[in-house]
C-alpha cells in the first residue's frame, strides 16, 4: 500500500549537448538550464491504478524515475506514505520500458532476484513458482530471455516485480512494442492483477485508451515545462470497461484528445 504525494516538484538540468545548435535560442543553448517539470502537485490514494498520459518528451518518465528514487528532484518533495523518497528501494519496483530482465539468467533466476531474502530454499522455490504460474509462464522457468516473445518478457518482468511484494509498482510504458492482441491481453492481465493484489500502480503510457480502460485515475501532463492538466479519478465504471458504451469515458476521451491537441477523433 502506498499513498503518494508530490509537492511542488521541479526538475531542471543543464543542457550538455556537445554539438551547438542555435545559440540564440535559450532552450537549446549549450550549458543553458532546461526546465523539464515545473510545480507539479499530485496526490494518489492507496491502491490506486494511476495512468499518466502525456506527449512524448514531456517529462513523464523523468517523474517516474524520481518516484522510484533513480533521480533527484531539483526542488520539491515526493512523499510515499509520508516519507520522502531518498533512493531506490525494493518497496517500489520499477518495471522498465525496455528489457530490464537480466539476459544471462533464466526466467526462474530473474524472478528469484526478488525473493533473495527467503533463506529456506524450498519455500523460496514455492514463491518463485507461484509468481511464474500467476503470469502463466509455467514451463518456461529454465528459458532464457532471448527465447521468449515480447509479451512473455513483459510478463516475466511483472512476475519478478510482484514476487518482491512491493508497496507500489512503477511501470514505464509497459506495453510499448507489443502487438495489438498481446497488448489487449496485457491490459486485462494488469487490471486483473491490480484488482487481485490491490497495490498502488503508477503507469506511464501514451495510449489514451490504455489509460481509460485501465486507470482508476488519469493524469494528463503536457507543455514544456510539463504541467498537470488533468488529474481525474474515474469512479463507478467497473472493469471490464467498454469505452464505447460508457458516456463518461467517451467524454473524458474527447477532453483528453483535445488537451493533447488532437481535435478530430475517429
Amino acid at each position: 500500500m502506498a499513498h503518494i504525494k508530490i509537492e511542488n516538484l521541479n526538475k531542471r538540468y543543464i543542457n550538455r549537448r556537445k554539438t551547438r545548435r542555435d545559440d540564440d535560442n535559450p532552450e537549446t543553448k549549450v550549458g543553458a538550464e532546461v526546465v523539464v517539470l515545473q510545480d507539479i502537485n499530485l496526490e494518489f490514494e492507496d491502491g490506486e491504478m494511476v495512468c499518466i498520459l502525456g506527449s512524448s518528451g514531456c517529462g513523464k518518465s523523468t517523474m517516474l524515475r524520481m518516484l522510484a528514487g533513480f533521480d533527484r528532484p531539483t526542488s520539491g518533495r515526493i512523499l510515499i506514505d509520508g516519507e520522502q523518497v531518498k533512493g531506490p528501494s525494493s518497496n517500489y519496483i520499477y518495471v522498465f520500458q525496455h528489457n530490464g530482465l537480466l539476459p544471462w539468467m533464466t526466467i526462474w533466476q530473474n524472478v528469484e532476484l526478488g525473493v533473495r531474502h527467503i533463506k529456506d530454499e524450498e519455500e523460496r522455490g514455492d514463491v518463485i513458482q507461484e509468481y511464474i504460474d500467476m503470469v502463466e509462464l509455467t514451463g518456461f522457468e529454465d528459458h532464457h530471455i532471448y527465447q521468449l516473445s515480447g509479451g512473455m518478457r513483459r510478463r516475466a518482468e511483472l512476475a519478478r516485480a510482484l514476487a518482491v511484494e512491493p508497496d507500489m509498482l512503477i511501470m514505464d510504458e509497459p506495453f510499448t512494442g507489443l502487438d495489438f492482441l498481446t497488448r489487449m491481453k496485457m491490459r486485462e492481465e494488469v487490471v486483473n492483477m491490480h484488482e487481485y493484489i490491490g497495490k498502488t500502480i503508477v503507469m506511464v503510457t501514451h495510449d489514451i485508451d490504455d489509460a481509460l480502460v485501465m486507470g482508476d485515475r488519469i493524469v494528463l501532463m503536457a507543455g514544456t515545462p510539463a504541467e498537470v492538466k488533468v488529474s481525474q479519478k474515474i469512479l463507478d465504471v467497473p472493469h471490464p470497461r467498454n469505452l464505447e458504451k460508457e458516456p463518461t469515458l467517451c467524454n473524458l476521451r474527447e477532453e483528453l484528445y483535445l488537451k493533447l491537441g488532437v481535435s478530430h477523433v475517429a
Binding site: G69, P88, S89, I93, Y94, F96, G100
Partner: peptide, 11 residues
C-alpha cells in the same frame, strides 16, 4: 545502466 538500476531497485 538499466541493469545497475535493477540492482539498486532490488537492493
Amino acid at each position: 545502466p538499466i541493469y545497475f538500476q535493477v540492482a539498486a531497485n532490488f537492493g
